[in-house]
Simulated scan of single mutants.
Amino acid sequence: MASGAQLTVTDLRRATRHPVDHKVIGEHRRLGDVHLHIANISAHGLMTEGELALERGERVVIRLPEVGRIEAHMIWSAGDRAGFQFERIIRLEDFMKMIDTLQPNPRLRPTRR
């Protein structure tokens, strides 16, 4: 029996990441509440900084502004950083609203067309 996440989206690490400094509490099936510090985010996933008691393939459910609850699967970890892929891609409109909330500094926000 295979363990870990069975993800269908291939390597999306080239997706545009937006730097953020946002702390959330994730829900994990075994550990309960897990504190996460999000360092960057894209419509496909996020990167955290700080030690985590999670292993590759494990899942957490987090709540993001404008997006609401979303499940994220740990894809990689290196030292005190970890990368997570969302269960679904965040819609562009919701993503842009979320970035406006998470990046209060307008110079860090993406340029609007």
Results as ranks from 00 to 15, higher is better:
S3N: 11
A5S: 04
A5Q: 01
A5R: 00
Q6Y: 08
L7R: 08
L7T: 04
V9P: 15
T10G: 13
D11G: 07
D11P: 10
L12T: 10
L12A: 11
R13P: 08
R13I: 02
R14Q: 11
R14M: 14
R14I: 15
R14C: 13
A15V: 12
R17N: 07
R17L: 02
R17V: 09
H18R: 13
D21V: 12
D21M: 12
D21H: 07
D21L: 11
H22T: 15
H22E: 15
H22Q: 15
V24N: 02
V24L: 07
G26C: 06
H28W: 13
H28F: 14
R29C: 11
L31V: 03
L31F: 07
L31T: 03
G32N: 05
L36Q: 14
I38F: 01
A39P: 00
N40S: 11
I41N: 14
A43P: 01
H44D: 12
G45Q: 05
G45E: 01
M47L: 07
T48C: 03
E49W: 05
E49D: 06
G50A: 03
G50T: 00
A53P: 08
E55H: 07
R56V: 14
R56C: 15
R56I: 14
R59K: 10
V60G: 10
V60T: 11
V61E: 15
V61Q: 14
I62F: 02
P65T: 00
V67R: 06
V67M: 09
V67L: 10
V67Y: 09
G68I: 01
E71M: 05
A72G: 06
H73P: 09
I75T: 06
W76D: 05
S77W: 09
S77H: 12
G79R: 13
G79W: 04
D80F: 00
R81S: 08
R81V: 13
A82E: 05
G83W: 01
F84L: 06
Q85I: 10
F86I: 08
E87G: 08
E87S: 10
R88L: 11
R88H: 08
I89Y: 08
I89P: 14
I89L: 07
R91Q: 10
L92D: 09
F95C: 04
M96L: 02
M96V: 05
M98N: 04
L102T: 00
P104Y: 06
P104A: 03
N105E: 07
P106S: 03
R107Q: 12
R109I: 00
R109N: 05
R109K: 04
P110E: 04
R112E: 10
R112D: 10
R113Y: 12
R113N: 11
